[in-house]
């Protein structure tokens, strides 16, 4: 069906002003090399030539790009802001070039973009620890916000004595803890414009994300030992094992459970 070829060509012209310029410079009977192989009628060829010269195509391109951009600025706002830095901006162009838009699903596009950046960071192609921490934190914030989970108003009553020692603590699913050496407030949309630091302090710091109600996630800093305990509480080891390993008192587990951050009861 030639309409299929026409739609592919039209879409390519919408996405690429450079392709439009290339086509506009060609005589009416010729097509850009990229369109060779597309089944097109003579009328469709004439239409494409007219479109390549139509000023309204730039508006269509603007809308296409604005929609792509808004998917990221709405889901990963602080990362998007950081990517505006001249050193990072070419990566956004590369992402758009190498990953054509497959969806208008904001969260899916955010995961896809985050996957692209994390791939570069993990492979060492991009070395930028502040960006890596910001991206991981903002992605976790997004996922927690979309989970629909919220910290219960009344945390579970934790076991005490021998039962506490044998309990296998787990982080509440409404929380997320991750290493983060910048100011947690920077994750708030109202936190003002951000410029990422060149380097991060060589010290241990943690970020706690708490979903206080469905869709509302609050970031806050964590004292180091609380961060270590929460990070280590995967349900795999007992309190007795963890406190020996981490060098912390049992009371810290009770405290975190009473705050609703840790679950000490049997896994459901």
């Amino acid at each position: 069906m030639s309409l299929a070829g026409f739609q592919r060509a039209l879409s390519a012209l919408v996405m690429s002003p450079a392709l439009r310029a290339e086509m506009a410079a060609l005589p009416e009977q010729e097509l850009p090399a990229r369109f060779v192989g597309l089944e097109l009628t003579e009328r469709e060829r004439r239409r494409l030539h007219a479109l390549a010269r139509d000023a309204g195509m730039k508006v269509t391109t603007l809308l296409h790009r604005a929609n792509r951009l808004s998917m990221l600025t709405n889901t990963l706002p602080r990362t998007s802001e950081a990517m505006a830095h001249p050193k990072l901006q070419p990566l956004v162009q590369r992402y758009w070039r190498e990953h054509p838009p497959t969806s208008v699903m904001y969260v899916r596009e955010a995961r896809r973009f985050a996957g692209f950046l994390l791939g570069l960071l993990r492979s060492g192609e991009l070395v930028h620890p502040p960006l890596a921490e910001l991206l991981e934190a903002e992605l976790a914030l997004l996922e927690l916000g979309k989970s629909g989970l919220a910290m219960p108003a009344a945390p579970e009553v934790p076991p005490e004595g021998a039962a506490l020692e044998q309990a296998r603590p787990r982080l509440g699913p409404w929380c997320h803890v991750l290493p983060f050496r910048m100011e947690p407030r920077m994750l708030l949309r109202s936190g003002g414009a951000i410029t990422l630091p060149e380097n991060l302090p060589d010290e241990e710091r943690y970020l706690l994300l708490t979903s206080v109600s469905p869709g509302q996630v609050v970031p806050s800093g964590l004292e180091v030992m609380r961060g270590r305990v929460l990070r280590a509480s995967t349900g795999e080891h007992s309190v007795a094992w963890l406190r020996a390993e981490l060098g912390c008192p049992s009371s810290l587990f009770l405290e975190l459970a009473r705050e609703g951050l840790l679950l000490l009861g049997p896994a459901q």
């Binding site: 026409f6 879409s11 838009p101 497959t102």
Partner: peptide, 22 residues
Amino acid sequence: SFTRLPHGPGEHMDLGVMLPVP
């Protein structure tokens, strides 16, 4: 309008903008 095109096996491309049909 149309917004989607085929893009690899089982995938599609979504332009995110409603393009009119002829």
